[in-house]
Design a protein around this nucleic acid. Structure first.
Length: 665
DNA sequence: CTCCATGTAAACACGA
DNA sequence: GTCGTGTTTACATGGA
């Protein structure tokens, strides 16, 4: 099914390809809700002590909340990951994200570029936040209940430890939860997702977690703030963002035994329902949109009044289309979610500690605390993801997916990406826009885990694969491996894409087969490779502009760095890339080329993250020349890791400039 | 409309 | 005969 849907979507071919039907199980098709892991809460109750029960439930509640978060985030990215096991959860998300027009997740993936998907994901996250909020409420209730229960239990069968303490502790925990909720509310409010009296105090954004791509965030805030003051909420709430954002990623690693009792996400299109059912405040009417409530648009900072859903949808499509502003807002939302996640994790850990202190089984699994330990999870996530030899998305990996992409995604959603809204057929590579390298670098975690087709041509991907290697040569099989390693999408339908790879290797002169002792390897003839593109790029001014923007994009933005740090994208680290810079005498770098991007950055001397064409406008000088020079593989990468500060700064500026960009045709 | 680049499918050859 | 690797052709699609 997937194969077909994919291909069909891509080319919208009526002929319908029956040929390769290695269709993998469709995640959403599965219907029924197969294994909902959760559901354990009930059984457990019987034999637990009150304290244990409390713990258990608390834990579960948190877990569910967290998991829900993850699922929300993951849903889009790795639909296939759950094949066979829990097909249900993910689809709903993506479906929910879709406005009225019902499009299958798969289709959506095919249609939208990853960044776009991510953007959509952000939307979904908003929903998720709402649900999370609901969850907090419930959890509170639960806590209360538990407290009561425990009190009674205490009276009936006095325990060695004074209940008072426990109660205190629990109350504290309760408080924590309340705070969390409050915070959450504020965030929602800030985002315009909830219509509450606007917050007041204005607090400098600077306090935001540096760990979280501060620059991006700040910039985003600036943009978003234009519409309405928001900063305060975060700051006020005292979001303790000191934690590494990267950690959030690791959370995912947390095991996942979703007791989805609370959020039974049926297959398919439940997401829409969940909020509706659970939250009375936000989703009042069936068929309503997560971003629509109380007759107004809940898009952050919007509040536009819409009489009905139809009008709202229209409004949504016109006013909140996939542009830089929306992207920025999504990013903000993303950050919010991340913060919440971090906070949640912290609170969970605290709870664990409390529980432990209250003589709970120390050995008890601590799903949440674990993540925290993964501070250096960057490594972990990478290793895990690399681990899947069979391409089977394992829990940790898939869990990781959501966050990374989230953070990275938005950053990637730049002018360049915006162009690729349409069919996948036109891949990035061809378009003047984002260099494959940078895109990959930024989203490689995403592609790695999400079953989304990369917006690059086979040729550019192959080239990328080859160039990433130290000796710049790969056997066919190695190329295959690279594909499967780097892209979840290529872990299935192997017959199709492998054929395409071979086809491309043979077809394009730029790929040179070299007989080797042990067989044959494929290399890239840069000259040839570049020869084929220039024509396209040198088009309208706009194109040039776009191209430039793509090139100019200093791959150094925070996200990028983060990505690097976390995943240590091979490419970036590859010695070749670093050394060969000078060696590459190739001019006209393919714009989809990784190294090219980097090079550009260096040449410019500006680490300014990609983005804005505007920026270019201010520095036209480079712009025009860019296309012609710079070749890939360059060392810049290494710089990335070390240039955080610069990046940050540059990033801020870039973001600002990002908005005006639109001239792209 | 044509041209071109691309993606997909498939037939075929060749060697292990 | 099967499989992996390559080559080639045909066709469809979409952008310029």
């Amino acid at each position: 099914m997937m194969v077909e849907s994919a291909s069909e979507t891509i080319r919208s071919t009526p002929s319908g390809q029956n040929g390769v039907s290695s269709l993998t199980n469709q995640p959403d098709g599965g219907g029924g809700g197969g294994g909902r892991e959760g559901a354990a809460s009930g059984e457990a109750n019987g034999e637990m002590s009150p304290v244990e029960l409390l713990h258990f439930q608390q834990q579960q509640a948190l877990q569910v909340a967290r998991q829900f978060l993850l699922q929300q985030a993951t849903g889009l990215s790795s639909p296939s990951s759950n094949e066979g096991k829990q097909p249900a959860v993910q689809v709903p998300v993506s479906v929910a994200m879709m406005s009225p027009q019902m499009i299958t997740p798969q289709q959506m993936q095919q249609i939208l570029s990853p960044p776009q998907l991510q953007a959509l994901l952000q939307q979904q996250q908003a929903i998720m936040l709402q649900q999370l909020q609901e969850y907090y409420k419930k959890q509170q209730e639960q806590l209360h209940l538990q407290l009561l229960t425990q009190q009674q239990a205490g009276k009936q069968q006095p325990k060695e430890q004074p209940l008072g303490n426990k109660q205190l502790a629990f109350q504290q925990q309760l408080l924590q939860m309340q705070q969390l909720q409050q915070q959450h509310l504020l965030n929602l409010q800030r985002q315009g997702l909830v219509s509450l009296p606007p917050g007041q105090g204005t607090v400098p954004l600077q306090t935001l977690p540096q760990a979280v791509c501060p620059s991006d965030l700040q910039q985003l805030w600036k943009e978003v703030t234009a519409a309405q003051p928001v900063e305060d909420s975060i700051k006020q709430e005292g979001l303790d963002l000191t934690t590494n954002t990267s950690n959030s990623t690791s959370f995912s690693a947390a095991k996942v035994s979703p007791p989805i009792s609370h959020h039974p996400l049926p297959n398919g299109q439940s997401t829409m329902h969940t909020p509706r059912r659970d939250s009375s405040s936000h989703e009042e009417t069936p068929g309503s949109h997560p971003l629509y409530g109380h007759g107004e648009c809940k898009w952050p900072g919007c509040e536009t009044l819409c009489e009905d859903l139809g009008q709202f949808v229209k409004h949504l499509n016109t006013e909140h289309a996939l542009d830089d502003r929306s992207t920025a807002q999504c990013r903000v939302q993303m950050q919010v979610v991340q913060q919440l996640e971090i906070q949640l994790a912290k609170e969970s850990e605290r709870l664990q500690a409390m529980m432990a202190h209250l003589h709970m089984r120390p050995s008890e699994p601590k799903p949440f605390s674990q993540p925290l330990n993964l501070v250096s999870s960057a490594t972990l996530s990478k290793s895990t993801s690399d681990t899947f030899p069979d391409g089977l998305p394992h829990p940790p990996t898939s869990a990781t997916a959501p966050i990374t992409p989230l953070r990275q995604g938005p950053s990637v959603i730049s002018s360049s990406t915006l162009h690729n809204v349409g069919p996948i057929r036109r891949r990035n590579s061809e378009k003047f826009c984002t260099p494959i390298s940078s895109e990959l670098a930024q989203n490689h975690e995403f592609y790695k885990n999400a079953d989304v087709r990369p917006p690059f041509t086979y040729a550019s991907l192959i080239r990328q694969a080859i160039l990433e290697t130290p000796d710049r040569q790969l056997t066919l099989n190695e190329i295959y491996n690279w594909f499967t390693r780097m892209f979840a999408y290529f872990r299935r339908n192997t017959a199709t894409w492998k054929n395409a790879v071979r086809h491309n290797l043979s077809l394009h002169k730029c790929f040179v087969r070299v007989e080797n002792v042990k067989g044959a390897v494929w290399t890239v003839d840069e000259h040839e490779y570049q020869k084929r593109r220039p024509p396209k790029m040198t088009g309208s001014p706009t194109l040039v502009k776009n191209m430039i923007s793509g090139l100019g994009y200093g791959a150094l933005n925070a996200s990028y760095q983060a990505a690097l740090a976390e995943s240590s994208f091979p490419l970036l680290n590859s010695p070749t890339m670093i050394n060969t810079s000078s060696a590459s005498g190739m001019l006209h770098v393919g714009h989809d080329d990784v190294s090219s991007t980097v090079e550009q950055v260096n040449s410019n001397g500006s680490n300014s993250p990609r983005l804005s064409p505007q920026q270019y406008s201010s520095h036209p000088v480079h712009v025009k020349e860019e296309p012609a020079e710079a070749e890939d593989d360059s060392r810049p990468v290494s710089l990335l890791a070390t240039t955080n500060q610069n990046v940050t700064i540059a990033d801020d500026r870039d973001l600002e400039e990002e908005l005006p960009v639109e001239d792209l045709s």
